[in-house]
Design a protein around this nucleic acid. Structure first.
Lengths: 116, 116
DNA sequence: CTCGAACTACGACGAATTTCGTACAATGGG
DNA sequence: CCCATTGTACGAAATTCGTCGTAGTTCGAG
C-alpha cells in the first residue's frame, strides 16, 4: 500500500519566504547552532549521521528540520543519507553579514567559555 | 559615577554573563525585535510607555525583562518611568557586527515585506 | 496625604517546543 | 530476496513561551 509519489523530496522555503525571526530562533538553540557552525566550517555538505549530537536520532531529525524549515540549511537525499549544507548564498543576500557575525560570535563565545 | 541611591535597582547580566543563544532568542520575537529596532534608532533612552505595542502592559513588562535579562538592553528607573537603552558597547565588544547586521536585516525585511 | 501614572508580581491559560521511545520506510550491497 | 544503514513518523510527556487579568508598589504632583 505504498502510495504513488516519490516522497524523497524535501520542502524548503524559497529565499523570499525566509524570515529573520525564524532564522534567529533556529540559531538560538545550542544544538542547532553547533550544527550550523560545523556545517559552515566544513564548507561542504555533511550527512546527518556525521554529527555526534547529545540527543537521540528523533530529536536530531527534529533539529535538522527546524533548520531546514527556517531556511538556514538545505537538505538533499543521497542514497540512505541526507546531506546538509548552509544556505549561505540566500542568507548573505537576504541578511548581509548576519551569518558571519553569528558564526564569529559563536566562535568567540566558545573560546571565552568553552575553552576558557 | 551614577548618583542613584535608589532602592529600585534592576539586575542586569554583566558583560561576560551575556550569552549568544540568549541574545538570539531575545531577538527572535517580533515584539522584542521591534523594541530593539526603535531603541537602536533613538538618540536617547526611551521609556517603556513610549512604545505602542500590540500587547498588554503585563506582556510588555515581560518582553522588556527578557531583553534586559539576556543583556540586550539596559533599564534604569527615572521617577515612575523606566528608561531603556540598547547595550551597544557590550554587544559590539562581545559579538562584533552582530547587532548591526540584525538591525540591517530587520530593516531590509521590513522594507521587503512590511512596505515592499 | 491623596491621587494618578508607570510599572511589577503573581497566577493562570493555551499553544508551541523539546525530548524521547518505538515502530516503520527507503536505499544499496550481498 | 534479505538485511544493515539511515533517517522518518507518530505518540506522549515535560517544559517553555507568550499572553492576559488583577492586585499591588513606587514615584511625583497637588
Amino acid at each position: 500500500m505504498t502510495t504513488a509519489a516519490s516522497p524523497r523530496e524535501l520542502a524548503h522555503p524559497t529565499r523570499d519566504e525566509i524570515r529573520l525571526e525564524g532564522v534567529l530562533h533556529a540559531l538560538s538553540d545550542p544544538v542547532r547552532l553547533r550544527v550550523v557552525r560545523e556545517l559552515a566550517t566544513a564548507e561542504s555538505e555533511l550527512s546527518c549521521s556525521y554529527f555526534d549530537l547529545p540527543v537521540t536520532k528523533s530529536t536530531s531529525t527534529h533539529h535538522f528540520r527546524v533548520l531546514r524549515e527556517s531556511g538556514v540549511i538545505r537538505q538533499v537525499y543521497r542514497g540512505t543519507a541526507k546531506m546538509n549544507g548552509v544556505r549561505r548564498d540566500d542568507l548573505d543576500e537576504l541578511f548581509p553579514g548576519l551569518l558571519d557575525s553569528v558564526l564569529t560570535a559563536a566562535a568567540g563565545e566558545a573560546a571565552r567559555h568553552g575553552a576558557g
